[in-house]
Design a protein around this nucleic acid. Sequence first.
DNA 1: TACATTTCTTAATCATGATTAAGTTTTTTT
DNA 2: AAAAAAACTTAATCATGATTAAGAAATGTA
Lengths: 190, 190
Amino acid sequence: MHPNLIEYIKRYVSITEAEIAIFQTYLHSKKIKKKEFLLKEGQFCKSRYFIIKGCVRLFHFDNKGNEQIIHFGIDNWWITEYESLINQIPSQLNIQAVENTELLELPEAYFDELCEKVPIIERLFRKIMEKTYIAIQKRIEYIYSLSGEEQFRFFIDANPEFTQRVPQYMIASYLGMSPEFVSKVKAKIK
Amino acid sequence: MHPNLIEYIKRYVSITEAEIAIFQTYLHSKKIKKKEFLLKEGQFCKSRYFIIKGCVRLFHFDNKGNEQIIHFGIDNWWITEYESLINQIPSQLNIQAVENTELLELPEAYFDELCEKVPIIERLFRKIMEKTYIAIQKRIEYIYSLSGEEQFRFFIDANPEFTQRVPQYMIASYLGMSPEFVSKVKAKIK
DNA sequence: TACATTTCTTAATCATGATTAAGTTTTTTT
DNA sequence: AAAAAAACTTAATCATGATTAAGAAATGTA
């Protein structure tokens, strides 16, 4: 198994070499080029993906036809479209590579089987979900308590790596702001 | 075990009578009166709570000293403050009863033990978290794609029971709007 | 190197929804 | 039933950040 994933897992749970070996058999690696899609609107999402290296964005088109970025994924993040994956319905969202991206794919079809063989995996994903939930709840807190300018400053302070890797207009979209406004705030900061 | 919780569990996983019986031994019932606190800022959150009947709100005070409601919990919802519970840090949020509320308390101290005895519980909570995550991600989608007026209309259409049970200014706070604005929109609807 | 595409910037105007300030209605308490 | 407190309404003014429109800079491609 890729050392990044082993290290990631060990941040959440204790796991044996044998358990890792079994987990490994359920994963296969995948590479997508910049601008390629991992999932398109209307398709069924059938896997969870661990990003070894790269960056993807999860987005949809809002009622006015504007791209709205829901969130990003970068190195050492799990990413998937839960609504499609869990409810087995067509995805309303797209997952697209922002950079050339190297992933590990964990197909959902065998996920329950894996959890029965290696119950610690169930715990791992329960804990990942809890952390993810804490993060998204904080995001809502910031949306409501900070001004647009404060949100942008906070984002670049908290995620300096994104600022390098992701075009500014995508950060604007993620933060629900117009690119023009971000440009104005940026000019003010310098 | 309370029939509401049994029914709730069965929506997510298959569970035997024996497993329910074990789960039961980890729960104790609790009642809080309207305006009483389940958790106060600064305290450590040590349990997950299942609401049998009633309504609570999870809120904090923002930088301007305004109450900001993060979310509500009503009948047949699990509620807790995950950041405090998982990271074992003092809570930044309050949980307060909006109505007299009847709960089942599941202490976190024995949660891992319970999951080892009854592994299906780990799966149950993993699945609950996934559903919860889908819901909160949709909330972010609506925040960014709907106008304030649309968000309010959508909320009351999707949650007519809340409109009856929760004061209007709390719904305003949950939606990140001023009570005056909600009042204006409501007048427009009639 | 030149051309094309993508991304970013600047500035003017406009709209949504906050704030302020009264006043009214409803609910709770005495 | 009266008084007090809590919740809601209305209307005027104001601010944040969107929209529009144009152009500049950066990046990619022939």
